[in-house]
Design a binder for these strands. Structure first.
Lengths: 336, 336
DNA sequence: AGTTGCTATGTGAGCGCTAACACTACCCCA
DNA sequence: TGGGGTAGTGTTAGCGCTCACATAGCAACT
């Protein structure tokens, strides 16, 4: 344990230069003779020197770490996003520190932010698709670069978001185009912007088509709640098309329909959202909407780096359009 | 940006003490008068002071950060584990920094380790269920506390592992107990310890029961590969029981069996592994084996903290037993 | 020859904290 | 009454790095 590795001065001594020259080599400073640079690099390699991020962070006031705050990184969406963020950040030389949070209320978020700030993270990405998160975010110190993913479109905070509305509209329209008179919706939980956006898109598409607007079935992202909603829907003969707010809800719905002997897609069509890797292997393979998590991650990191470098926070925002993935769970409604 | 927050000396000045006393209060040092402690706490609150982790890390040589190295945090297992690790670490006052890695080969892992070390993480958890990871780990500096999760049982590295063998044995035995003459296995990819362990457990159970050992169907964790294997199995009339190395494989198998009109569990029984939240909503609900990720995370962090505090690395290891979750995908084999 | 301007390098200070030690009271017991 | 502990606090010296500035060398002008 106790053995501290070599420091910059050790490298400097070996290379016969000052520690400052070593620092310049490390940071790619231009005014260093090629020969000197090589000598320093050789010394670094020989000693197995590794720059001390803590010391650098101390003097610059910023570490090369980006803090991410998320709620449930077990869900497919957040997990994918987190992985993509980490990948993108690594390419830019940043590490990612996760701050999971059980609840997305003020206190939990503030605590997580606090933890990140005490490590002097360079910036924070909040995967906070929940209304209650918004207020906590406004209280944040203004001097910390911040990007929100799938957050509140109303708040003046840099935001990257999947176009939930467009995705839901596409899903609904796809079902209407197949000949269905209207589309039922099993939604995500209240308080989530994702839920709200998908509800809006669904509603818009129905309104635009002059279709009847059926009552909403509120779910909570889980297959369990999808199953419960599916048990209702399966009993209603007039239901021929269902759009669920995510694929797991769809799985639950499919299961309920199957139990009631309602055939998909012959009697009822179903469309999900997320395109989890398994969606193609549901019974039947699920038509769904795929958000591009990589694009979201790239945009987020980009927005964050801009702030970090320029110091200027803007009310920038970027929207990523999802795409419809057509599989076998949609067909024309049965003839009466 | 530029505004640095208050430092320890500012708090000290306001409280009318020395900065060292503030440090003592912060670190829970015993010899501080109650009255002084309160005054310091008040000053901290008034200034909104936040200790600077970088400075602390610089002087102590260790930050309150645990580095995690994982491959694909999108898969359910790793994602759950990561979340659980983060949760547990947070309870102990540690942050978690993720180092995703595309491939688990020497170079990628070494690079990730390098990144973590330059941030002077207090310890590293490697979720490295792959053979190729082992060698890279042995080259690591010996002075960094390290714990491997689901790693190589043969290597002298502290290891926490789910008892894959016991889980697989239980799954296989469960099928044999239901009356099946033998059990087929769709495995995970080669080179993964998880795969190997589950294969071993399956084999052991069959051998112990004196059952015939059918050929292995190698998969790769994905529903897609499960589907491909399922297409084979569905054509073979003698197949009545299948154990898959994870739930997603099972999903693919179920889908293939369904397409071929083979009824589950009436004609064929299926058991999975992982107990993903959706498993209860597969068609039919999947009997599976549930590893306790929270327990694994707790054990890992515990092992790591022991090393961090004592400085002594031991070839410690802990094994977490999984439990069988019985649902509807298993029944007695059909009468001939 | 003197001034300017550039490049390549060195020097010194200090980021905010903890560890080690120094110091002051005060109490206890011989 | 004095020596030795002990609780409470202050002082000092870095940890390893970057920043701002100083310096030295050399080319290119006046």
């Amino acid at each position: 344990m106790a053995v501290r590795g070599p420091a910059m001065t050790d490298v400097a001594r070996l290379a016969g230069v000052s520690h400052q020259t070593v620092s310049r080599v490390l940071n790619g400073h231009p005014n260093v003779r090629e020969q000197t640079r090589l000598r320093v690099r050789a010394a670094i390699a020989e000693l197995g020197y590794r720059p001390n991020g803590a010391a650098r962070a101390l003097v610059t006031g910023r570490s090369q770490v980006i803090g991410v705050i998320a709620q449930n990184t077990t869900l497919y969406g957040p997990a994918s996003l987190l992985a993509a963020l980490e990948q993108t950040a690594a390419e830019e030389g940043f590490a990612v520190s996760v701050g999971s949070v059980r609840d997305l209320d003020h206190r939990s978020i503030s605590a997580a932010v606090e933890r990140h700030l005490s490590h002097r993270v360079a910036g924070i990405v909040v995967i906070a698709p929940v209304e209650s998160a918004g207020e906590a975010l406004e209280r944040l110190p203004k001097d910390v670069p911040l990007v929100t993913v799938d957050g509140d479109p109303q708040r003046p905070v840099p935001l990257v978001t999947v176009d939930q509305v467009a995705g839901a509209r596409a899903a609904t329209q796809h079902l209407l185009d197949a000949g269905h008179r209207t589309v039922w919706h099993v939604s995500g939980p209240a308080g989530w912007f994702d839920s709200a956006g998908r509800i809006d898109g669904w509603r818009e598409a129905l309104l635009a088509a002059g279709a009847e607007l059926p009552p909403l079935l509120p779910g909570d992202w889980s297959a369990a709640s999808g199953y419960r909603c599916g048990q209702m829907l399966a009993r209603m003969p007039e239901v021929t098309a269902i759009f669920t707010a995510n694929d797991h809800l769809a799985l639950g719905v499919l299961r309920a329909l199957h139990e009631f002997g309602r055939r998909v897609p012959a009697e009822i069509s179903v469309v999900g959202f997320d395109d989890v890797p398994e969606a193609a292997y549901f019974i039947p393979p699920l038509t769904t909407v795929r958000p591009d998590f990589d694009a979201v991650a790239r945009a987020s990191i980009q927005l964050l780096l801009t702030q970090i470098e320029s110091g200027a926070a803007g009310a920038l925002r970027q929207t990523i359009a999802p795409t419809l993935v057509s599989r076998d769970s949609v067909a024309a409604p049965p003839r009466r």
